[in-house]
Amino acid sequence: MRTAFTLALLILHILPAAAQAPTWLEDQLYGGGKLNAVIAVVSIILLGIGIWLWAQDRRLKRMEKAIEKKTM
């Protein structure tokens, strides 16, 4: 449920079509023959997978704690 809401928030955050980018962003994206758009995309993917791994890490930590409690 919690993940669902986080994701919903994330997506709702992205959706608004009307939101126009400020000019500095435009300059950034168009820079270097639009190579910066590629860099942005690759970074987003790596960041996204990183965040997922971090969340998974926390889940494992919770489980480890539960095991410790049981064995004690």
């Binding site: 992205i14 994206l29 639009k34 996204g48």
Partner: peptide
């Protein structure tokens, strides 16, 4: 989520808007 965000960035760079219909 990754597809949506990366798509939004690429769309801004090519079509000039984050979201199109």
């Amino acid at each position: 989520a990754l597809g949506l965000t990366t798509g939004a960035v690429w769309a801004r760079a090519t079509w000039g808007a984050f979201w199109t219909n």
